[in-house]
């Protein structure tokens, strides 16, 4: 791990500026996340990815759903949209198609993206919609008090599974690959450097990209399951994570305390939705096809 990335200066004098400040809405600080929560770490990585991407940030938009991670959009100093529960992906789809020069990032949680929004996830992946989905997976519905989610491993105790989760969970990376994603990776909040690099990579990759980030929720998930605090989570991630780039995603399912396979699993080139659209319309309509110009003119 790079010391430099974690070494955020604590100097409170006016001259000291946190390197990620330009990427955040500082007028909205402090944020709402709990001590030890991993979402802020992912945002830090995202800010650094934005910085190193060299992209014109006026042309990067971020869309979130609802939940703890759903609040990310509100802190990002970008055109940002905090939408409804589960619907960040279809909102992002409309945004991208109406204004294709935007790089559209969906930043949301496991419950939002894979339970209430699960259908949108698989269809956006199927279409290879050119959006980048970052899922902060804390294995629970944190905003509402720690209930069982679609990614909660079995045997875990949650607010709605007081006797232990017995229903199987999704393997998110396998789901993403099967649905057609062009890029699939998984990291934990321990792997900040790798995560930043993956984020930067997807900002330059065409098509539907998916990054899962395992992230601790000390307040709810860990407390109920006697898994310690944020630092214990880092130790746990360090201990059980195994980097296996290119690992078959079918072998990457998560359990309560077992190995966490991390790495980049899928990186393939498929034509994205707009490319397919243009290709099809040009083939069938020829000169009659008018390239979409969706934005309306000013008054």
């Amino acid at each position: 791990m790079s010391e430099a990335i974690l070494d955020i200066p604590l100097d409170s004098t006016k001259t000291a500026i946190n390197p990620v400040e330009p990427y955040l809405r500082m007028d909205r600080m402090p944020h709402i996340w709990c001590p030890g929560c991993g979402i802020g770490t992912t945002v830090n990585c995202f800010a650094r990815a934005l910085e190193s991407s060299g992209l014109n940030l006026d042309k990067v938009a971020i869309v979130s759903g609802i939940g703890c991670t759903g609040r990310v959009a509100g802190y990002a100093n970008l055109d940002s949209f905090h939408t409804t529960h589960g619907r960040a992906i279809p909102f992002a789809t409309g945004l991208k198609l109406s204004n294709p020069e935007l790089q559209v990032v969906v930043y949301s949680g496991d419950g939002d993206l894979f339970a209430i929004g699960g259908n949108h996830f698989i269809h956006a992946a199927r279409r290879n919609m050119d959006i980048k989905v970052i899922c902060v997976n804390n294995l629970t519905y944190a905003m509402t008090g720690g209930q069982t989610g679609p990614a909660t491993p079995t045997e875990v105790i949650s607010a709605t599974s007081p006797y232990g989760v017995f229903e199987p969970s999704f393997n998110l990376v396998q789901l993403a690959e099967a649905a057609g994603a062009s890029y699939v990776a998984r990291w934990t909040t321990y792997h900040v450097k790798q995560l930043s690099r993956s984020m930067e990579e997807v900002l330059h990759k065409k098509g539907f990209c998916f990054i899962e980030v395992l992230s601790p929720c000390p307040t709810l998930y860990q407390r109920r399951n006697k898994m310690g605090d944020g630092l214990d989570a880092m130790k746990f991630y360090k201990e059980v994570s195994k980097v296996r780039h290119g690992a078959p995603t079918s072998e990457c399912a998560l359990t309560r305390a077992g190995e966490i396979v991390v790495g980049k699993f899928v990186d393939r080139d498929r034509p994205d939705y707009l490319e397919l659209l243009n290709r099809q319309m040009t083939a069938t309509l020829g000169d009659r096809y008018a390239t979409p110009e969706v934005t309306c003119s000013e008054g």
Partner: peptide, 12 residues
């Protein structure tokens, strides 16, 4: 909701 994403992207 897709239509609303499109509106904020500049579309009617």
């Amino acid at each position: 909701i897709a239509i609303q994403g499109a509106v904020w992207g500049g579309a009617k």
